[in-house]
Amino acid sequence: MFEARLTASATFKKILDAIKDLLNEASFDCSESGIQLQAMDNSHVSLVSLMLRSDGFDKYRCDRNLTMGMNLANMAKIFKCANNEDTVTIKAQDDADIVTFMFEAKKQEKISDYEMKLMNLDQEHLGIPETDFSCVIRMPSGEFARICKDLAQFGESIMISCTKEGVKFSTGGDIGTANVKIAQTNNFEKEEESVTIEMQEPVSLTFACQYLNSFTKATPLASQVQLSMSDNVPLVVEYQIPDLGHLRFYLAPKIEE
């Protein structure tokens, strides 16, 4: 028996919004420690890694490890039927081929349930090596989204250059060039508005705008985003989901020829 109950179904809506452009379907691996999802997009350029800890749920029971393959567009259709304030309960029997989503309004005046057929996706499980990153940048997630959206008007790629002075986002195309520089802040009072840079070595890498803009669909999940970079390894864009877990995106850099 698997059962996970979360007071805010809005969190699930936000997670689905953030990943459904990159993935058509994905396996949710449920265990005692929580729900995990790890999948590459079809072109193997980006990887989505979601972790929702069992202790972040209002109720969590997982008697046996369970892998639930789900079509994310269909899952999003079901979550559209829930109000943001509804409590969601996800239920499945051991070895089941269906999953049930139950939505309850706060005062129990409306209870609805939706059953969805599970898919056998046979996805590979990937080991992600531990990396000591040369640069780790933390900045307001809204600001990062704004920069990616603004620069995408001018070019297909964004170069992210990190030095101890700050971070520079640059692009260029037919119109001309665009550069946005962000400096480290000393704003210790408002943590969500701060920019912090931990730099071992300066790094400069180029990434596709299209993917960065997809990742920023996760902005409503967290006030801050963390960008981790090293030469020749994927960029990690991480959103911490308060009291529940994290959503990470890995992106292969563009290779200069």
Binding site: M40, S43, H44, V45, S46, L47, E124, H125, L126, G127, I128, P129, S157, T206, A208, V233, P234, Y250, A252, P253, K254, I255, E256, E257
Partner: peptide, 14 residues
């Protein structure tokens, strides 16, 4: 010019 890299090779298949 630049080409898009891929993630294959960065991760190990478990």
């Amino acid at each position: 010019t630049s080409t898009q890299g891929r993630l294959d090779g960065f991760f190990t298949v478990l």
